[in-house]
Amino acid sequence: MIRYQTVSKTFPTGGGVRDLTLEIPTGKITALVGPSGSGKSTALKLVNGLLAPSDGTLCIQGIPQKEWNPIELRRSVGYVPQNGALFPHMTVLENVTLPQEILLGASNPRISQAKNLPEKRFRRATHALKQVELDSTEFGNRYPHQLSGGQKQRVAVARTLVTDPKIILLDEPFSALDPLTRKRMQILLTKLHKELGFTSIVVTHDVAEAFAVADYAAVMDRGRLVESGDLQSLANNPQSAYLQELLAHTQQQSQHLQTELGEP
C-alpha cells in the first residue's frame, strides 16, 4: 500500500531522508524508530504530501505521490501529530466534526452529500469519541484547553477516524504524555487497529513503544534506513550495531526498573 523506492528528501539546512527503500505492510502498524534527526518524521510527512520527495518514487495505494491531488491524498490519510494540534477556538465536538465538514462542496466528495448531513456528522463524531473512550456528553462541548494531554490525543485520534481512513500516520503521538497515560493510549491504538484494520505508521524514538504497538519496524539513523522487518525477528537477531545498542540500553533500563521495584 505504501512503498518507498530509493526516495530522498533533502533540505538546504541539512537532515532529511536519503535513498530510502521500504515497503509498509498493508493492514499492519509499522514503527519508524530512530533518534531525533534520523529522518523518520520526514519519511512520514512524505506519505501525506506535507513534503514532496526530492528524488525517487513513493507510491501510495499504487499511485506515485506526485500524481495524487494533494488535497484528495490528505483527506484520505489520517494524521496525528505529537501535541494533537486541536484547534483551540473549537469545541471537542466541532474539532471532531471538522474533517467531514471540509468535504462539503468538494468537487469529488468521498462521502456523498446524503451521508454528510449535519445530524449524520454529529452521530459519526459522537461515535468516534466513543471509539476513543470519551463520553461526548461530558467532553463534547469542552475546549481543548480544558482537556488533559491524554484526552487531547484521544480527540486527535477520534478526529482522524470520522472519515474512515485506510491509512493513519502518527508522529510521536504519545511522547509528551506521562508513562501511565502513554500505556493506556498504546493499548487504545492497538485495540482500534484490531477493530478497524487500517494501515498505520507510528514515528517514535522509543523502542519500548514500538514493541507495545507495532507489528513491524524500520530503524533509521542519520537519514538512512538501518534495518527493517517484523519486530520479533529484529529483536531476536539485530543486524546493525545501532539496533543492538538500542535494545541493550532498553533492556538495561527495564532490568534497572525491576531491581528497584524489588521484583525478580
Partner: peptide, 20 residues
C-alpha cells in the same frame, strides 16, 4: 503546527483561512 494540521487534514487554502 496548526497551519500544518489544516494542510494535513486536506483543507483547501480557503477552508484553512475561513475555518482556522
Amino acid at each position: 503546527e496548526l497551519q500544518e494540521q489544516t494542510k494535513a487534514m486536506g483543507m483547501t487554502t480557503r477552508q484553512s483561512l475561513l475555518r482556522v
